[in-house]
Computed example of a mutant assay.
Amino acid sequence: MRTIYIQIFCSFILLLAACRKDDSPAPLPGGSISFQLPADKDTVQIPVSILKDSAMVVGLKAALSGHTSSSDHWVSFAVDTARITAYRAEYGDAMVMPKTSWLFYKPTTRIAAGSPVSEDAELNIGLQTNLMEYSTYVLPVVIQSVDGNPDGIATSRVVYLVFKTGKPLVISKTGWTIDGVSSVFNAFAAANVLDNNNLTTYWASNITQQMPQWISINFNRDITFTAVNYYLPPLLSYPTLGGYPTSIRIETSMDGVSWTDKGVFEGNVADNMQTIDTGETTARYLRFTSLASVKYASMYDAIFISGISLVP
């Protein structure tokens, strides 16, 4: 009886092995899977608007060179950020698209039996307003594996998805730093005007000092803009408690030493913010000075600014 069981078990194993062999994809020659792009093309230019956040889908296809296959094949794409060095060497300066702005929603796709081209793999792009204006972002894409095999079958080719940004709604603060400040009260640091939180964090000048009070920002790059926005923290109940400027001087500089006076402007806040038109200006530094203010709680010469930004 035991001999019969062993024979049955061995037959079952052989049957499974035969099924696996029959179900496995037909073998493919080395380098036969590539991108569905001309052989001399390794960049794909994709314009991207940063005026608002929107769902954007980039499709990628794999191609089987020279022939079709009698069975399905599964191709997996991946982003290889280390390849940005090679892109820069060939095409010039660019940044890797930040991980917060892309997701390989469908990295694996199928080349159906009898077809030379795969279905679309899907790369999603979003949070475009976090990207910098007039900049180049790159995602280097490679074929990671074919039918689970990372070696041999797929080309070693890299395709660079190149995203060119244009005019923003508000210029990105990425890279901005505080260059100087006249005074600070307690923990209400000057850097709070750069944190993209215009509601609950703010810079406060020292309540024991008088106007003028100023803050200087280093953009760390040349920026062209037409206006300056500043914001007041809503929790201080503008205009009830005071603590806001009534006269403002805006100055700009290219080196942080020599300053150009863009004018003195009357405070005119609406919805806890004011836009100050400077005319088209290119600068690396901005100095915002409160020349006069409404006393906070009718007692203190202080201003509270929750944010400063630039309008393109």
Rank of each mutant, 00 (worst) to 15 (best):
residue 177 T to L: 08
residue 177 T to C: 05
residue 177 T to F: 04
residue 178 I to E: 13
residue 178 I to P: 14
residue 178 I to W: 08
residue 178 I to G: 04
residue 179 D to R: 10
residue 179 D to Q: 14
residue 180 G to S: 15
residue 181 V to W: 06
residue 181 V to T: 15
residue 181 V to P: 13
residue 181 V to M: 07
residue 182 S to M: 08
residue 183 S to V: 00
residue 184 V to P: 02
residue 184 V to N: 06
residue 184 V to D: 02
residue 185 F to L: 06
residue 186 N to Q: 14
residue 186 N to W: 07
residue 187 A to M: 12
residue 187 A to P: 09
residue 188 F to E: 15
residue 188 F to Q: 15
residue 189 A to S: 14
residue 190 A to Y: 12
residue 190 A to D: 11
residue 191 A to V: 12
residue 191 A to G: 11
residue 191 A to W: 05
residue 192 N to C: 10
residue 193 V to G: 05
residue 194 L to N: 12
residue 194 L to I: 08
residue 195 D to G: 06
residue 195 D to S: 08
residue 195 D to H: 01
residue 196 N to Y: 05
residue 196 N to W: 03
residue 196 N to G: 06
residue 197 N to V: 07
residue 197 N to E: 07
residue 199 L to S: 15
residue 199 L to D: 14
residue 200 T to P: 02
residue 201 T to L: 07
residue 203 W to A: 06
residue 203 W to N: 03
residue 204 A to P: 08
residue 204 A to L: 01
residue 204 A to R: 01
residue 204 A to I: 00
residue 205 S to Y: 02
residue 207 I to M: 07
residue 207 I to F: 03
residue 207 I to Y: 07
residue 208 T to K: 03
residue 209 Q to W: 00
residue 209 Q to T: 12
residue 210 Q to D: 10
residue 211 M to G: 02
residue 211 M to A: 10
residue 212 P to H: 04
residue 212 P to S: 09
residue 212 P to M: 01
residue 213 Q to K: 12
residue 213 Q to N: 10
residue 213 Q to P: 00
residue 213 Q to E: 15
residue 213 Q to M: 02
residue 214 W to D: 00
residue 214 W to R: 07
residue 214 W to E: 02
residue 216 S to Q: 15
residue 216 S to F: 00
residue 216 S to H: 00
residue 216 S to P: 01
residue 216 S to L: 00
residue 218 N to C: 06
residue 218 N to E: 05
residue 218 N to F: 05
residue 218 N to G: 06
residue 219 F to L: 08
residue 220 N to V: 08
residue 220 N to Q: 12
residue 220 N to I: 07
residue 221 R to K: 15
residue 221 R to L: 02
residue 222 D to K: 15
residue 222 D to A: 14
residue 223 I to E: 10
residue 224 T to Y: 09
residue 224 T to P: 09
residue 225 F to H: 12
residue 225 F to E: 05
residue 225 F to C: 10
residue 225 F to T: 09
residue 225 F to Y: 11
residue 226 T to R: 13
residue 226 T to H: 01
residue 226 T to Q: 13
residue 226 T to F: 01
residue 226 T to P: 03
residue 226 T to A: 08
residue 227 A to Q: 10
residue 227 A to F: 13
residue 228 V to S: 06
residue 229 N to M: 09
residue 229 N to V: 04
residue 230 Y to P: 01
residue 230 Y to R: 03
residue 230 Y to E: 04
residue 231 Y to E: 04
residue 231 Y to C: 07
residue 231 Y to W: 11
residue 232 L to P: 02
residue 232 L to I: 06
residue 232 L to Q: 09
residue 232 L to S: 05
